[in-house]
């Protein structure tokens, strides 16, 4: 494991912790897209099918369990928690899941490395993860005042994707035959979706003003 990969995983972990902190301690999910969280739960459920068939390392298994557990508990909190669910911006969070899920499934059925159930599901999870942030970005754009924790959550998620690209560049040069076009293209697309957000995030940070995305 290289430093970029580790830093990427830790940033991903931090993003989840920031979100859980907001939901668990402040008891609010204002500005958080349930649609995006449900898509992430689906991403991890379809990607980590190998958790029961292949053992890679303790680190790998533990992280998979954390991402599965946290994504499903976040969805549970927003949908069912007595207090948290009242802060959910239902009327603003209107992105339709299937507009992302169906094209990703079709693409995975046609463009994959190997036509097996596990491999197609893995590929579907890569495509879906690439676009899963869209409902959250749309919601941020509609939210007038984005609170610090929500802003940091999205920033950390974007940073995690960026660090994975450096990880792939590093692995390409240090490991023989390390070529995964599908993973790389999906990962680059995913990172590019954050470009606009990053721009406004740094601007607000530089000028010390509240983060606000132009409509």
């Amino acid at each position: 494991m290289n430093i970029f990969r580790l830093a990427g995983d830790m940033t991903h972990l931090a993003s989840v912790l920031v979100l859980l902190l907001k939901i668990h301690t402040i008891k609010s999910c204002a500005g958080v897209s349930l649609k995006t969280q449900e898509l992430y739960a689906l991403v991890f459920a379809t990607r980590y099918l190998d958790i029961v068939t292949d053992f890679i390392s303790v680190y790998n298994t533990v992280m998979k369990l954390i991402f599965l557990g946290s994504s499903f508990s976040i969805v549970w909190y927003i949908r069912h928690h007595r207090v948290v669910r009242r802060s959910y911006d239902k009327d603003q969070d209107t992105f339709r899941h299937y507009l992302l899920m169906i094209p990703c499934m079709l693409l995975a059925l046609f463009v994959h490395e190997k036509f097996t159930f596990k491999e197609v599901m893995w590929t579907f999870s890569l495509y879906l993860e690439a676009v899963a942030i869209l409902p959250q970005l749309v919601l941020l754009q509609r939210t007038r005042n984005i609170d610090n924790l929500t802003g940091q959550y999205v920033f950390l998620l974007g940073a995690y994707r960026g660090l994975y690209i450096f990880n792939w560049i590093y692995r390409y040069f240090t490991e023989p035959h390390f070529v995964h076009w599908i993973t790389w293209i999906a990962g680059v697309v995913q990172t590019l979706l954050y470009a606009d957000f990053f721009y406004y995030y740094f601007e607000s940070w530089k000028n010390n003003v509240r983060l606000q995305l132009p409509a």
């Binding site: 990969r5 995983d9 991903h12 990607r47 190998d50 292949d54 890679i56 390392s57 790998n60 992280m63 998979k64 991402f67 490395e113 190997k114 097996t116 596990k118 491999e119 893995w122 994975y164 990880n167 692995r171 490991e175 023989p176 035959h177 390390f178 070529v179 995964h180 993973t183």
Partner: peptide, 10 residues
């Protein structure tokens, strides 16, 4: 990591 389906990344 040679295109075989051992996915060691998260």
């Amino acid at each position: 990591t040679d295109g075989e389906s051992t996915h060691d990344e998260l």
